[in-house]
Design a protein around this nucleic acid. Structure first.
Length: 524
DNA sequence: GCGGATCAC
DNA sequence: TATGGTGATCCGC
């Protein structure tokens, strides 16, 4: 073997490790796979994917990140060297470290341990609902989804079958896998059944998704004179849900939403876990927790952190000085809050009025290239978006066209409307305009999305009152308001408080804005 | 404000 | 043979 091909082989192996990690999908090492030989599974996935367009696209992305992470690593090493030899840089470093500590102090000042939050997570929800109707599936490997799996029962997970995995790969891992079609209505019904029970514990309960909810049990416990521990209440809650609905749930207990969520993942399925609600207990818990376990750190960020020698949340604090240079303000603050175990502890029902966009997209079994077929599809998509908007009584001011080419490249094109609308024809007109710049193109997916939404009735009223020249526009968020003193006051009050909180966070926690990565300041 | 990309479910 | 849909957020221009 020549030297050259040897090098190539090494190079390829290096790339393959990141690539395999990508291909393995988002739910690697999620509960239910503790006994699975990940290496072997990943190898099967890799082989099954090899050569496809999808594979090539993933390869491209893996190369990009590998290159980027390598560069950053080198820069950090250079920085370390500079700190030893260059007093000017060292002075700047200690100045920045001081800023970081101030930031941490201000975050600590906001730490609130007064609430007891519980995260409730249904076990393999879709699969469990199917098993209720056909108990025979309980002992067989089974998954729900079409083309791509949404969830797999624990029996299937033993084979390495996971959510977000394409069906054909799942079948290679588990030839006897039973795959059922989605029945969203059934799941939603069951979800509502469970929610009703949870509401007895917290009427303000937050339904985070079809199979998840957050509760604040503080008031419940006070009402019951704290005769019971949280753990006992949650134990009882899980039992009640299982008895009344037939669905087992896993629960996490913690001082805020993030901790409760992490905790519910610790002992799946059908069990619960509690993270102590003292600062010390929280810091100790986070210290050794792998970064990937926190909501918000996905596969890519995990790899990036790993290349910076940050594997557990505690490492974030230990290497805060370096992370400060690598990440932007917002991301850096998020990382710190993860490591400190600080997050939102207010549980409130999600209000639909807060929605920021409405869209519809579709993948085709056969890619499309002709302008006519593409426009026809887009017209349908516009129509369904329009229908959803009308149902929810919303109008929008901006439209987004989304394309995925046959090589899995994703493009989005956005334009502002000169009006607010939910009319299919108007949306379609703008979408066609956006499409015209992209032709010719071969697409495997098309999507239409409306953003900058407003309540349709408020918008209509405001138009009306403006013609009467007595309309009102909120001075803070500049949304149009119904011109009646009571509702305007109420809105402004709310709007002010939101803006105020945002300002507080900004002035308290943010350091100066930068346009580039901080590390570049050291290399000028 | 736009477009690319990540993330969660 | 073959890799989803919906919505949000962040970053860099």
């Amino acid at each position: 073997m020549s030297i050259c091909s040897q090098d190539e082989a090494n190079d390829d192996d290096l790339k393959n490790e990141d690539l395999m990690h990508r291909l393995a999908g988002p739910s690697v090492m999620k509960p239910g796979q503790e006994e699975v030989d990940q290496q072997k599974i990943n190898q099967v996935i890799y082989e099954a994917s090899k050569g496809s367009k999808f594979f090539e696209n993933e390869q491209k992305k893996a190369r990009y990140w590998q290159e980027k992470n390598k560069e950053m690593k080198l820069k950090l090493e250079e920085l370390e060297l500079g700190l030893e030899n260059n007093p000017e840089k060292a002075a700047k470093w200690s100045e920045d470290m001081h800023k970081i500590d101030q930031l941490i102090n201000s975050m600590e000042a906001q730490r609130d341990l007064s609430r007891i939050i519980v995260h409730v997570d249904c076990d393999a929800f879709y699969a469990s609902v199917e098993e209720l109707e056909k108990p025979a599936y309980k002992t067989k490997p089974m998954a729900v989804g079409q083309g791509v799996l949404c969830t797999a029962n624990y029996c299937a997970r033993k084979f390495g079958v996971r959510s977000a995995m394409p069906e054909f790969i799942a079948r290679q891992l588990c030839p006897n896998l039973i795959v059922l079609p989605l029945r969203m209505m059934k799941y939603q019904e069951k979800s509502a059944e469970i929610a009703k029970i949870l509401q007895e514990y917290d009427p303000n309960m937050c339904k985070a998704s079809v199979d998840e909810a957050y509760l604040d049990l503080t008031d419940y416990l006070t009402k019951h004179n704290e005769e019971e521990t949280v753990e006992a209440v949650v134990e009882h809650l899980r039992q009640t849900v299982a008895e009344k609905t037939g669905i087992t749930v896993s629960c996490g207990i913690g001082a805020n939403l993030m901790l409760a969520k992490i905790a519910s993942n610790m002992r799946k399925p059908n069990d619960q876990f509690s993270i102590g609600r003292t600062r010390e207990a929280i810091l100790e818990f986070m210290d050794t927790l792998p970064c990937r376990k926190v909501n918000g750190i996905g596969r890519v960020l995990e790899q990036e952190l790993s290349s910076l020698n940050v594997h557990n949340c505690g490492d974030i604090l230990r290497r805060k000085g370096y992370l400060y240079y690598v990440f932007q303000e917002k991301s850096f603050q998020n990382l710190l809050s993860y490591a400190l175990g600080i997050s939102n502890n207010v549980v409130k029902p999600t209000d639909a009025s807060n929605r920021k966009s409405i869209g519809n997209e579709m993948t085709f079994s056969i890619p499309m290239g002709s302008e006519k077929t593409i426009s026809q599809k887009l017209k349908q998509l516009c129509f369904s978006v329009s229908e959803t908007m009308k149902q929810r009584n919303l109008v929008g001011n901006s439209v987004v066209l989304k394309l995925k080419t046959t090589s899995f490249e994703v493009r989005t094109r956005q334009t502002n409307l000169n009006t607010y609308t939910n009319e299919s024809d108007i949306i379609y007109k703008y979408v066609l305009q956006l499409l015209s710049y992209e032709l010719p193109v071969q697409v495997r997916l098309l999507g239409v999305r409306m953003t900058k939404l407003q309540d349709a009735s408020i918008y209509e009223e405001s138009k009306l009152s403006f013609t009467k020249e007595n309309g009102v526009q909120c001075p803070i968020c500049s949304r149009y308001l119904i011109n009646d003193a009571c509702s305007v006051d109420k809105h402004i009050e709310e709007c002010l408080s939101v803006t105020y909180i945002k300002e507080c966070l900004q002035t308290k926690t943010s350091v100066k804005k930068r346009s580039k990565r901080r590390i570049d300041e050291y290399f000028r």
